[in-house]
């Protein structure tokens, strides 16, 4: 069910904190407690180091590839309170540096490409920033959600642009409102909706009994309803479903043996990968009766 294609010795000198393939699966970005971001070209079972990006002065927690229609862009966030957007034009250079947070920046996520070039990031200072590239001015606009989660926001994820928002009339061709889900140290999951030039709290989802470590909004392809996966220090993974993106119903996927650090949806949105502090990766799928089953478990 799972077969390893490549094993990459990243050469990082300390813990790895994130690894992401780009849109085409041809490039791998990694980041680490050694303060660096590395980019590898992946081809037929081999890999070559394409770039070793040094610009952060603290552990780099997460990276995110932008949609290729905006060029080769990679965002990284770090304990040094900074977000850096890197651009490849011949060489990799810093395109933009965001220093609006007062504490460790824990997660970065690009908005669906339909909305433009927009990056959301969140911090241990409790706030979320939404950074929008303004094509006309060539500058970056920042909107901030202060006090989003007390004592820190750990993770952030965008609602897909084409969503199961049944309240929208497809004929009116109205864009779905932009939404973000965030998870924090207050054990809460919050859903934020853009309204005018502000982001408002639309919903808070209470279920976890400890820090929410990761949240992931499922891609909408072929799904009947919206889904969000969340995982927590409380060792549980919860699937939240909604028909209208407004009222959400939780289902506990499973209680694991250790802290769950990451959840990730397959691009078709029907398989969830769950990864925990015990190095176990498991894959989950919903059956026809709406039950979540483990279809594969990998422990190395």
């Amino acid at each position: 069910m799972i077969s390893v294609l490549n094993t990459i010795d990243t050469g990082h000198e300390d813990m790895i904190h994130d690894a992401e393939l780009d849109y085409y699966g041809l490039r791998l970005a990694t980041c680490s407690s050694d303060n660096s971001v590395k980019i590898y070209d992946i081809k037929s079972g081999t890999q070559t180091l394409a770039a070793d990006l040094k610009g952060h002065f603290g552990p780099v927690w997460q990276i995110a590839w932008a949609h290729p229609k905006y060029g080769n862009l990679l965002a990284s966030c770090s304990y040094d309170r900074k977000v850096i957007i890197w651009k490849e034009s011949g060489e990799w250079t810093k395109l933009y540096e965001y220093t609006g947070h007062e504490s460790s920046v824990n997660s970065v996520a690009w908005a669906p490409a339909e909305y433009g070039l927009i990056l959301a990031c969140c911090s241990s200072d409790g706030s979320i920033s939404i950074i929008t590239y303004n094509q006309d001015g060539g500058n970056w606009d920042v909107k901030k959600i202060p006090g989003a989660h007390a004592i820190g926001v750990n993770s952030i994820s965008w609602c897909p642009a084409i969503s199961a928002d049944l309240n929208l009339d497809p004929l009116s061709n109205k864009e779905a409102p932009k939404r973000i889900v965030s998870g924090g140290c207050d054990n809460l999951i919050k859903i934020w909706r853009e309204q005018g030039d502000q982001w408002v709290e639309e919903n808070r989802l209470e279920m976890h009994m400890d820090w929410v470590r990761d949240v992931a909004w499922a891609p909408s392809l072929g799904l009947q309803h919206s889904m969000i996966a969340s995982c927590s220090q409380d060792k549980r993974v919860v699937i939240w479903t909604s028909d209208d993106n407004v009222s959400w119903t939780p289902t506990i996927l499973n209680t694991f043996d250790d802290v769950v650090w990451s959840v990730s949806w397959s691009l078709t949105g029907n398989i969830l990968a769950v990864s925990g502090g015990d190095n176990k990766v498991s894959l989950w799928r919903e059956n026809a009766d709406g039950q979540w089953l483990c279809i594969s478990e990998v422990a190395k």
């Binding site: 690894a19 992401e20 791998l28 460790s104 990761d214 650090w261 990730s264 502090g277 190095n279």
Partner: peptide
Amino acid sequence: WLRRPAAARFAFGGKLVTFEKC
């Protein structure tokens, strides 16, 4: 407590990127 030790990330074409606590 901030240092994420492991994760699994899906990518295009059913590829899964993983790393673990070492």
